[in-house]
Simulated scan of single mutants.
Amino acid sequence: MRVVLAPDSFKGSLSATAVCAAMKTGVLRAVPDAEVLSVPMADGGEGTLDCVGAATGGQEISLDVTDPLGRPVTARYLLAADATSAVVELASASGLTLIDPTDLAPLRADTHGTGQLIADAIRRGARSVLVCVGGSASTDGGTGLLRALGALFLDASGAELPPGGGALADLERVDFTHVLPEVHATRFHIACDVTNPLVGARGAAAVFGPQKGAGPDEIALLDRGLARLADVFAGAFGTPVHHLPGAGAAGGTCGGMLAALDATAEPGCELVARSVGLADALTGADLVLTGEGRLDRQSADGKVVSHVARLAAEQDIPVVALAGQTVAPLDDLYALGLTAGLSIADGPRTLDAMTTSAAELLAHAAEQTLRLRLG
């Protein structure tokens, strides 16, 4: 029996690689001579760097940059073995998890550190850069990232605006004359897992601002700033991104890169699956195990489980998702090709207890799944 393991991480508990290890333990308990192939997955957010690195190799580069509030932080990115391409995870330098909840600063937080990672990769020779934009702490429209590449954002008097989205309502023009020359020869790709536009009721500020500490007045100011940024970018680069699906990802970083860097954006799962060769790995499989922390109807909207199910269905391979929690209905996932979605819980447990025992519970659930399959 050939079994492919292609799960997402269980957030706050196990990395995708650790989930694969636990699943493999269970599979081999049931079928000791099974051929087990582990393909850790991610949706383009946190954890993507590790998945792509495990599949493709390359060199992990650590760099001292600035966090969302301008403080020193050591972040990392992946540089290909031939140094021609790089994978940058925004959360590593500009993520919300880098800020204590008591220190949230929605008006001045920015993405400068992510830009520093990109600039370093470009200086080392990368001419294709994949930026995974999940988990940002800012709503700056990617201006911090672009500043790190040499862009200037100026007010009516010609003075440079302070960092963060709170000042963007005063933006008069953008100056790209000092951008690193190599930037113009670099192709930028964005792994994006949301479809929100840049501005408006479903925009970056309105939907994601509250989790970054923004109140109603701050949300309104940030939304005005992003609209002004989009106006200026449309005039400078000819690409209006105000209402473009996905432009609101990562506090508008996606929109800023689409407009100013002529970037392309794709669902993160598709980019990761292609990078790790998932479709080829599935060939000849008898069963696929996937999973994530919580399986519900939102899992069908661009999450790892949905993409794995779709690819497995194309090859008529049964696929079972194991999750910490499953919430019915799962009809949308079944329609995509999921055979079954099962919870790993073995009875009433607290979240802490589930988290602590996740590996053991996953192994047990994988074992039972294989025993059912054999039956």
Rank of each mutant, 00 (worst) to 15 (best):
K11F: 11
K11W: 11
A18H: 07
V19D: 01
A22I: 13
A22L: 12
G26N: 04
E35R: 10
V36N: 00
P40F: 11
P40G: 06
M41W: 07
A42K: 05
V52S: 05
G58I: 10
E60S: 02
L63K: 11
D67L: 09
L69V: 12
P72E: 11
P72I: 12
P72W: 11
V73H: 12
V73N: 01
A75H: 08
R76G: 07
L79N: 08
D82Y: 03
A83R: 13
T84A: 06
S85M: 10
V87D: 01
S94Y: 05
T97W: 09
P101N: 03
D103R: 14
D103E: 15
L104H: 05
L104S: 06
A105E: 11
P106W: 02
P106S: 01
T111N: 02
H112W: 13
G113L: 08
G115E: 10
A119P: 14
D120Y: 03
A121F: 09
R123S: 15
G125K: 03
S128Q: 15
V129C: 08
C132H: 06
S138A: 15
T139M: 04
D140T: 05
L146G: 03
A148M: 09
G150I: 08
F153M: 08
L154C: 06
A159Q: 15
E160N: 04
P163I: 10
G166H: 07
A167S: 15
A167T: 06
L168R: 00
R173M: 09
D175V: 14
E182W: 02
T186L: 09
F188A: 13
A191V: 12
C192D: 12
P197K: 01
L198G: 03
R202E: 15
V207T: 14
F208I: 06
F208M: 05
Q211T: 11
K212Q: 07
K212M: 10
G213N: 02
G225Y: 10
A227W: 03
R228K: 14
L229W: 01
G235N: 13
F237T: 15
T239Y: 12
T239H: 15
H242C: 08
H243N: 10
H243Q: 05
P245L: 12
G248L: 07
A250L: 10
C254E: 04
M257H: 07
A260S: 13
G268I: 14
G277C: 12
V288E: 01
G291P: 12
E292S: 08
G293A: 06
G293C: 09
L295H: 03
D296F: 11
S299F: 04
V305F: 05
V308P: 01
A309W: 01
D316F: 06
I317K: 00
V320R: 00
V320S: 01
A321L: 03
L322N: 06
A328L: 14
P329W: 05
L333F: 07
L338H: 01
T339C: 06
G341Y: 05
T350Y: 05
D352A: 15
T355M: 13
T355W: 00
R371K: 14
L374P: 04
